[in-house]
């Protein structure tokens, strides 16, 4: 059983004109077995929420709390958060030249499990996870994300999700820049993970398109740094038809 609980989270970034508040009191609870979609217009703070949960140093938490099964996530370092069971699939995965995917995955798996994966099954597990996301085995010998197309980077993120098996996955616009085939592959990867049991998913997206393949239990409209409205899957359909205008106007 795992629960990610975000309460009244306030986050600022430093700008040339001083600190600027991006998140203005976010409250969300993601229990295992639940998939939550966060939808919002550009600049609403969706990515800030994702990176703040992961602990990116650029974002300063000025108030509120984030806990995973009662443990204070905000007190943890970036890597401690991952070892505690959080995973962030990034919108723009970072290239790490000279570090092979194989080495990277093995090092990450070892860190998260606290022991090296069994050599006999590991290579097969890696190839299976890559293959399921449409990446052939040769990718394991390439440098992490280097020279990958936009779609390949996203597939690689989901392959990591499948291998590392966190408790809660935060997916930051994993659907952006994907063609329909890649979108289906990636969605299947996320669904496989979500059905693994005891898993929570926080799916951040700008478009409703991905929700045809990943069925959310809850949909939250995110505007001006906080949740403006929450509902079920039907809320996504309403957004598809009406857009964000109503919420953006109300937030002004």
């Amino acid at each position: 059983m795992s629960t990610l609980e975000i309460k009244d989270l306030h986050v600022s970034v430093t700008t040339e004109d001083g600190p600027k508040e991006i998140l203005k009191g976010v409250t969300l609870t993601i229990k295992d077995g639940e998939t939550h979609a966060i939808m919002g217009p550009n600049g609403s703070g969706k990515s800030t929420l994702a990176y703040s949960i992961a602990g990116h140093p650029k974002y300063e938490v000025t108030g509120g709390s984030v806990t995973l099964d009662g443990e204070d996530v905000l007190a943890m370092s970036v890597d401690e958060r991952a070892r505690a069971g959080l995973f962030l699939a990034m919108q723009y995965p970072v290239e790490v030249p000279g570090v092979s995917v194989a080495n990277f995955l093995r090092t990450a798996k070892t860190a998260i499990d606290g022991e090296a994966p069994k050599l006999r099954t590991w290579v097969k597990d890696v190839n299976t996870a890559l293959g399921a996301n449409g990446l052939d085995a040769s990718f394991s010998q390439r440098s992490v994300n280097e020279g990958f197309s936009g779609g390949e980077k996203k597939r690689h993120e989901i392959a990591q999700l499948n291998l590392l098996q966190p408790k809660v996955a935060v997916l930051d616009e994993t659907d952006s820049g994907l063609d329909i085939d890649a979108l289906k592959v990636v969605s299947e990867g996320v669904n496989t993970f979500a059905q693994g049991g005891d898993k929570g998913v926080l799916l951040i997206t700008h478009y409703t398109r991905i929700l045809r393949y990943i069925k959310p239990d809850f949909v939250h409209v995110f505007v001006a740094g906080k949740v403006a409205e929450s509902g079920g899957a039907e809320l996504a359909e309403q957004l598809e038809a009406e857009g964000y205008d109503k919420y953006v106007a109300a937030a002004r």
Binding site: D79, A82, M90, G98, V99, F104
Partner: peptide, 25 residues
């Protein structure tokens, strides 16, 4: 790069080691 590696559970010192290795590899 360090953030990306650490967000996968890899400790900071190990992440630095990987990045330097990669740089030279």
């Amino acid at each position: 790069q360090l953030f990306y590696l650490r967000s996968r559970g890899i400790e900071e010192s190990e992440a630095r080691r990987l990045v330097v290795h990669g740089f030279f590899n």
